[in-house]
Every structure is written in structure tokens, then in C-alpha cells.
């Protein structure tokens, strides 16, 4: 904490003085915690894996950063990177889907909302996939489904575990029934892994809803969540409008789901690597050749 304060004060002064000379604050050096609203020094925040050092709120992080934190540095190989989304329905609302895709690609540097990577965790070979929530709300369309399945296929072929970090609003409306069917597609792939006795760990991060929650996210051999993530089938607003009642305190938060029996455990971000390593070693220790 003291190191954080040390950095906070001098750099505050630095950026202030910079503003007086060049007229601008360095982009993104500061970030406000969405929960406790403390202004945080970004390098310090990053050192804490984007967990607020003040209130331990787990901030949302992008797919690549997530995989970067999780996987060993060596020997990573991306799966399905070449796959690009297509606007098969020529969907247009207030904006063309094609344009929405282009904007999202430009803003995130990703072609679609899921990044899949083969790699290892403390030397244990596995495949990890992560949703990019800032790409159209991490919504699942054809490419997300297909990349997920390609990841599953690598796991089936090499008999190595799959870990999925989900963060998604659900199925992608602009791909209509195509995206709905990705629920069935991904679930069928996971069922095959289950039949083969290959572990799948689902790690839900803030937020997971709709078609992603009601398919791949809930099908883990172990269902795990980060603290205080919002997870459910229907969004809280839709539920409130339907039942016309006030929702209970902590409704659809990780801790609530744990109490209701939907999760095996909640794991803090900085403990995910060792805990998943432990879990996966236990699950694979007695494997029959």
C-alpha cells in the first residue's frame, strides 16, 4: 500500500506539471475504480492484475491480457486466429452490423469476441480461451462458437484440459438464429470432452449472461467465478420488469450463485493460476492412458 501511495503522489505532481507545459494528461495513466471510485495509478493497478488495491474490486480486463496473465510466457499458439466474422443476414438496425463489426475490430484490435490459445500453465499443457467483453459485449456469434469448438478439438486431440474465461452479454443479436445455435454447438463439443474425461474449467468473470451463461459457461467440470461478478440468465432489469419486485441484495453476484449451488468456488484473480493448477493436477492425476 505504501508503494502505491509513493507512486501516487509524485506521479500526480508529474502529470500536473506536464499538463501545464504540454496542455494534456498522458492518456490513460489514471483509472477510476468503478466500485470505490478511487483514482488509481494505472501501472500500480496493472501490477495488481487490475484488482483495485483499495477495495479489491476485480475490474474487467481484455481477452489477451487475461490469457497473458494466465498462461506461461513460453510456447503459446493462437487457435482460429484467421477466422473472421461475416454478416450473413445483412443485418441492419440503427447501424449496419458490418459497420459495428468494423468499429469493434478497430477499437479492440480483435477480429471477434473470443481469443483461443494453446499453451501451458506451470508447464501443464492446456488450452485457454477468453472472451473480449469490449467487442460487442463479448457476444457469441458464429466465430466465437467456431473458435471455441476449434479449441475443444485441440483438447480432444491432445487430451489436454480446457479453461474458459467468460465475459459476455450473451448471444449476438445481429447473427440471430446463427448465434442461438452456437449455444448448442459449443455445448455439444463440451459434452464430448466430458464423455472423454478431459477436464473443462469454466471461469466466469464480470459479466456473464444469456446464451453464453446458458451454454458453455455453466458446463464446467468445475464452475468457478471471480469475486462479485454478475452472472445470470436474464439481466436484472428484465427480471425487475417481469416480476415487478425489488431484487434481493447481491442478486446474481458470484457469492449469491455460490450460495445457491451454481458455482464450485470463487477464486480471486491473483490466485487463479495456482488454484487452477492444483485443481487440474488433481483431476488429471489418475488418468487412464
Amino acid at each position: 500500500m505504501s508503494s502505491w501511495l509513493d507512486k501516487f503522489v509524485p506521479s500526480l505532481v508529474r502529470s500536473e506539471s506536464k499538463r501545464s507545459t504540454s496542455g494534456s494528461v498522458p492518456e490513460g495513466l489514471w483509472k477510476k475504480c468503478p466500485k470505490c471510485e478511487n483514482v488509481l495509478y494505472r501501472p500500480e493497478l496493472e501490477k495488481h492484475l487490475d484488482v483495485c488495491p483499495k477495495c479489491t474490486h476485480h475490474l474487467r480486463i481484455g481477452a489477451r491480457r487475461r490469457l497473458d496473465i494466465f498462461l506461461d510466457k513460453e510456447g503459446r499458439q493462437e487457435i482460429g486466429a484467421h477466422l473472421e466474422p461475416e454478416d450473413k443476414l445483412k443485418f441492419k438496425d440503427s447501424k449496419r452490423y458490418k459497420d459495428r463489426l468494423a468499429d469493434a475490430q478497430k477499437a479492440t484490435g480483435e477480429k471477434d469476441a473470443l481469443v483461443a490459445m494453446e499453451g501451458s500453465l506451470d508447464g501443464m499443457p492446456l488450452v485457454a480461451v477468453a472472451f473480449e467483453f469490449s467487442f460487442l459485449g463479448g457476444s457469441m456469434g458464429a466465430i466465437v462458437g467456431e473458435r471455441f469448438i476449434q479449441a475443444v478439438n485441440v483438447c480432444l486431440e491432445k487430451r489436454i484440459p480446457l479453461v474458459c474465461f467468460s465475459a459476455s452479454g450473451g448471444a449476438r443479436m445481429q447473427e440471430a438464429l446463427i448465434s442461438l445455435m452456437q449455444m448448442a454447438k459449443t455445448s455439444a463439443g463440451l459434452e464430448r470432452m466430458k464423455q472423454e474425461g478431459i477436464p473443462y474449467i469454466s471461469v466466469m468473470t464480470d459479466p456473464v449472461f444469456g446464451g453464453v451463461s446458458a451454454s458453455l459457461a455453466m458446463l464446467g467440470d468445475l464452475n468457478v467465478a471471480e469475486p462479485n461478478a454478475l452472472i445470470g440468465f436474464a439481466g436484472p432489469r428484465v427480471i425487475e420488469q417481469t416480476v415487478r419486485e425489488k431484487l434481493p441484495e447481491g442478486f446474481q453476484r458470484s457469492e449469491f450463485l455460490l450460495n445457491k449451488g451454481a458455482l464450485d468456488m470463487i477464486i480471486k484473480r491473483d490466485e487463479i493460476r495456482p488454484r487452477l493448477y492444483n485443481i487440474l493436477s488433481l483431476l488429471t492425476a489418475n488418468k487412464v492412458a
Binding site: M183, A184, S187, A188, L190, E191, R192, K194, S213, A214, S215, L216, A217, M218, L219, I231, G232, F233, A234, A262
Partner: peptide
């Protein structure tokens, strides 16, 4: 609700 739906999708396959 999510788990119930997901589980059906998996098993029906």
C-alpha cells in the same frame, strides 16, 4: 435457469 438450459443442450447432443 442457465445451468438447466445448458445441461439440456449438452445431453441432447
Amino acid at each position: 435457469q442457465s445451468e438447466a438450459i445448458a445441461f439440456n443442450l449438452a445431453v441432447m447432443s
